[in-house]
Protein backbone atom coordinates (compact mmCIF):
# COMPACT_ATOMS: atom_id res chain seq x y z
CA UNK A 1 0.00 0.00 0.00
CA UNK A 2 1.28 3.46 -0.89
CA UNK A 3 0.93 6.07 1.83
CA UNK A 4 -0.34 9.50 0.82
CA UNK A 5 1.93 12.52 1.24
CA UNK A 6 -0.26 13.75 4.10
CA UNK A 7 0.16 10.44 5.93
CA UNK A 8 3.96 10.55 5.48
CA UNK A 9 4.14 14.09 6.93
CA UNK A 10 2.00 12.98 9.87
CA UNK A 11 4.17 9.92 10.52
CA UNK A 12 7.29 12.11 10.28
CA UNK A 13 5.77 14.40 12.89
CA UNK A 14 4.94 11.39 15.05
CA UNK A 15 8.54 10.13 14.96
CA UNK A 16 9.86 13.64 15.76
CA UNK A 17 7.43 13.89 18.70
CA UNK A 18 8.35 10.47 20.07
CA UNK A 19 12.05 11.39 19.91
CA UNK A 20 11.38 14.45 22.12
CA UNK A 21 9.41 12.27 24.55
CA UNK A 22 12.10 9.62 24.98
CA UNK A 23 15.20 11.71 24.18
CA UNK A 24 15.64 13.48 27.51
CA UNK A 25 15.56 10.19 29.37
CA UNK A 26 17.95 8.47 26.95
CA UNK A 27 20.51 11.27 27.37
CA UNK A 28 20.15 11.38 31.16
CA UNK A 29 20.31 7.59 31.59
CA UNK A 30 23.85 7.56 30.16
CA UNK A 31 25.04 9.08 33.42
CA UNK A 32 25.34 6.73 36.37
CA UNK A 33 24.40 9.32 38.98
CA UNK A 34 22.70 12.68 38.64
CA UNK A 35 24.58 15.62 40.27
CA UNK A 36 22.49 17.45 42.91
CA UNK A 37 22.43 20.67 40.88
CA UNK A 38 21.03 18.84 37.85
CA UNK A 39 18.53 17.15 40.17
CA UNK A 40 17.42 20.59 41.42
CA UNK A 41 16.99 21.72 37.82
CA UNK A 42 14.90 18.66 36.94
CA UNK A 43 12.72 19.21 40.00
CA UNK A 44 12.00 22.70 38.64
CA UNK A 45 10.87 21.40 35.21
CA UNK A 46 7.10 21.11 35.88
CA UNK A 47 6.63 24.63 37.27
CA UNK A 48 9.11 26.14 34.78
CA UNK A 49 7.46 24.72 31.65
CA UNK A 50 3.88 25.14 32.82
CA UNK A 51 4.53 28.80 33.76
CA UNK A 52 5.55 29.51 30.15
CA UNK A 53 2.24 28.07 28.95
CA UNK A 54 0.31 30.51 31.17
CA UNK A 55 2.42 33.71 31.31
CA UNK A 56 1.81 34.96 27.72
CA UNK A 57 -1.95 34.38 28.22
CA UNK A 58 -1.81 36.50 31.38
CA UNK A 59 0.29 39.18 29.70
CA UNK A 60 -1.89 39.40 26.58
CA UNK A 61 -5.22 38.79 28.31
CA UNK A 62 -8.05 41.26 28.84
CA UNK A 63 -10.13 41.75 32.00
CA UNK A 64 -11.96 38.41 31.68
CA UNK A 65 -8.77 36.39 31.12
CA UNK A 66 -6.78 37.99 33.95
CA UNK A 67 -9.77 37.66 36.32
CA UNK A 68 -10.22 33.98 35.41
CA UNK A 69 -6.55 33.24 36.09
CA UNK A 70 -6.68 35.15 39.40
CA UNK A 71 -9.76 33.19 40.53
CA UNK A 72 -8.03 29.94 39.51
CA UNK A 73 -4.90 30.78 41.51
CA UNK A 74 -6.92 31.63 44.64
CA UNK A 75 -9.19 28.59 44.23
CA UNK A 76 -6.07 26.41 44.02
CA UNK A 77 -5.28 27.29 47.64
CA UNK A 78 -8.58 25.73 48.79
CA UNK A 79 -9.80 23.18 46.24
CA UNK A 80 -8.51 20.21 44.27
CA UNK A 81 -7.86 20.16 40.55
CA UNK A 82 -11.47 19.73 39.44
CA UNK A 83 -12.78 22.45 41.80
CA UNK A 84 -10.26 25.09 40.77
CA UNK A 85 -10.80 24.21 37.13
CA UNK A 86 -14.55 24.69 37.41
CA UNK A 87 -14.08 27.99 39.30
CA UNK A 88 -11.76 29.34 36.57
CA UNK A 89 -14.01 28.07 33.77
CA UNK A 90 -17.14 29.61 35.34
CA UNK A 91 -15.31 32.96 35.63
CA UNK A 92 -14.15 33.12 32.01
CA UNK A 93 -17.47 31.89 30.61
CA UNK A 94 -19.46 34.30 32.82
CA UNK A 95 -17.32 37.38 32.12
CA UNK A 96 -17.18 36.74 28.38
CA UNK A 97 -20.95 36.29 28.37
CA UNK A 98 -21.16 39.75 29.99
CA UNK A 99 -19.10 41.06 27.10
CA UNK A 100 -15.86 41.71 29.01
Amino acid sequence: MMLSEQALVILGGAVATYLTRIGGHLVLSRFRSIPPRVEAGLDAVPAAVLATLVAPQLFNGGVAEVAALAVTAVAALRFGMLGLFLAGAATIIGLRALGL
Binding site: L50, L53, A68, L69, A76, M81, A89, I92, L95
Partner: peptide
Amino acid sequence: FGLDFLLPIYFLGLVMSFRKR
Protein backbone atom coordinates in the same frame (compact mmCIF):
# COMPACT_ATOMS: atom_id res chain seq x y z
CA PHE B 1 -17.95 30.75 25.40
CA GLY B 2 -14.43 31.09 26.76
CA LEU B 3 -13.69 27.53 25.70
CA ASP B 4 -10.36 28.52 24.16
CA PHE B 5 -9.20 29.57 27.62
CA LEU B 6 -9.87 26.30 29.47
CA LEU B 7 -6.39 24.93 28.83
CA PRO B 8 -4.50 27.93 30.32
CA ILE B 9 -6.78 27.65 33.39
CA TYR B 10 -5.96 23.97 33.77
CA PHE B 11 -2.23 24.65 33.30
CA LEU B 12 -2.31 27.39 35.96
CA GLY B 13 -3.97 24.91 38.31
CA LEU B 14 -1.04 22.58 37.71
CA VAL B 15 1.49 25.39 38.29
CA MET B 16 -0.19 26.04 41.66
CA SER B 17 -0.09 22.36 42.59
CA PHE B 18 3.72 22.47 42.62
CA ARG B 19 3.88 25.43 45.03
CA LYS B 20 5.40 23.32 47.85
CA ARG B 21 8.51 22.55 45.80
